[in-house]
Design a protein around this nucleic acid. Structure first.
Length: 429
RNA sequence: GGAGAGGUGGCAGAGUGGUCGAAUGCACUCGCUUGGAAAGCGAGCAGACGUGAAAGCGUCUCGGGAGUUCGAAUCUCCCCCUCUCCGCCA
């Protein structure tokens, strides 16, 4: 959510950010108009209430309360009526009132882009900031991971479809073990870098979902239970970020770094026909998510560190990847700046997204009310929130299968995983 | 699912209709005291919004919402959460 105060102080900055994203900046003028209306209604309502409070206090102070009440009655009744009307108007206009036009405009506005975000309307304008590793030169035609996985007997899509339909998978034997090894490896790494491991709920309330900016924009993309009004998380970013909602954290406890290994659930409604084969896009997948709560002045550095933390995992796994700064038109709703990590997929001879590392600045913190206090006297300020996967299990597993496949159809296990796997390769049979 | 108890400031804990955003204690901040510290003493110490250059002023908030009343932390209703006991269960 955007700060009305910012729109008031610097509307041009907000317009510019919207334009860079390719969005219509007209909402800014609408916000300014509604905000003006709201504040004048609020002032009127509050001064009427002040008058009424003054009269009520007089009754309280009077020696003969009943007599005083009788005397002031007509005036109080008249005030009460007026206050009711004014308050009705305030509610209709309030930015805090769900459903009010002002609230809707503010809630739907995208985060302000960081100045360093490259210009551009779509993914073609994303900028590669660095890359690591060479795509392996295979002496044979690489198999896509779904074929490889089925031949090795570690992936079974037919039976997954029998159980749950399309976009589900079953991992078997060494495949399931490899998934577990990855989770363990990622979590161990996170811990060594000072992340606190968290095992959070994967079902969260509507308020929680809203507070991290997943609603109402992405409501269609989520699985939910209507009776309980609970949502299955599309990413652990949601519980990890919202965990400190409504709290004021003391500055010396920042940054807070959390890592969680959880399943994630996505309907992928907008992706019909896309990546229908294999495990690249499933309704249910697992990942280790990294979340930072940081002081505002440190969040730019924090994004660099978070991104490097995720990159390092790929380097240790010896998977070629590149890091891409998303251009203005490609940065998501919540984020001010995003780096995507893309890894090499031999079967499609292309880089595919594996991790998105974002600085959401105060955008989620404002919705969730996550604040920090610098010292006893200081006013609370909003923290900045950051998130990135480090890393998703399925897509990493896919990359290992494809990049480490051998001419004989077996798959080598990256050295760092061998202790976790207690094996050096996966072979058929 | 059944029965009961309870939700007040960072924490503990008063407050059952009137000047209460809220006693007191602890914690915390600043000052005095001290060679330094502890203790002691004094002052301060919730958040949001509006207004203002600021000091300040105003409004709202005692789990959430609705109501009664001139006036609600206090009374009524609904909801949520926590705890205890019972049942069921991974």
């Amino acid at each position: 959510m955007l700060d009305v105060g910012l729109i008031r102080r610097d509307p041009e900055r907000v317009r510019l950010s919207a334009k860079r994203r390719g969005l219509d900046p007209a909402f800014v003028d609408e916000v300014l108009r509604l905000d003006e209306e709201y504040r004048s209604a609020l002032t009127a309502a509050e001064s009427a209430q002040a008058e009424k409070n003054r009269l009520s206090a007089e009754i309280g102070k009077a020696a003969d309360k009943a007599a005083a009440a009788r005397e002031l009655r007509p005036k109080l009744d008249e005030l009460s009526g007026r206050i009711e009307e004014l308050e009705q108007r305030v509610r209709e206009l309030s930015p805090a009132e769900r459903g009010s036009p002002l609230h809707e405009l503010l809630a739907q506005a995208h985060n302000i882009l960081d100045d360093s975000v490259p210009e551009g309307n779509d993914a073609s304008k994303n900028v590669v900031v660095r890359s690591w590793g060479e795509p392996p030169k295979l002496s044979f035609e690489p198999l896509p991971h779904w074929e490889l996985g089925e031949r090795l007997g570690i992936l079974d899509f037919a039976r997954a479809a029998k159980l749950s339909g399309s976009r589900f998978s079953i991992l078997l034997g060494p495949g399931a073990r490899l998934a577990r090894a990855l989770a363990q490896f990622f979590l161990d790494r996170a811990q060594s870098k000072g992340y606190i491991e968290v095992n959070p709920p994967v079902l969260v309330s509507r308020d929680t979902m809203w507070s991290t900016g997943q609603l109402s924009k992405f409501a269609d993309a989520m699985f939910r239970d209507d009776d309980a009004d609970l949502f299955l998380i599309p990413t652990a970013e949601v519980p990890l970020t919202a965990m400190h909602g409504g709290e004021i954290l003391s500055a010396d406890t920042l940054p807070r770094k959390y890592a969680a290994f959880t399943p994630c659930f996505r309907k992928e409604a907008g992706a019909a026909g896309k990546d229908t084969r294999g495990i690249i896009r499933l309704h249910q997948f697992e990942k280790v998510e990294l979340v930072w709560l940081s002081a505002p002045e440190s969040s730019a550095d924090a994004l660099e560190t978070l991104t490097r933390d995720a990159e390092e995992l790929l380097r240790d796994l010896e998977i070629p990847y590149r890091t891409v700064a998303l251009c203005a038109g490609d940065v998501g709703f919540n984020a001010a700046k995003t780096y995507d990590l893309e890894l090499w997929v031999p079967s499609s001879q292309s880089y595919r997204e594996i991790s998105s590392c974002s600085n959401c600045t105060d955008f989620q913190a404002r919705r969730a009310s996550i604040r920090l206090r610098r010292d006893a006297k200081a006013k609370p300020e909003l923290v900045h929130t950051l998130n990135g996967s480090g890393l998703p299990i399925g897509r990493t597993l896919l990359a290992i299968l494809e990049n480490f496949q051998q001419a004989d159809g077996s798959v080598k296990i990256p050295a760092v995983l061998q202790p976790y796997m207690r094996a050096e390769r996966i072979s058929a049979g």
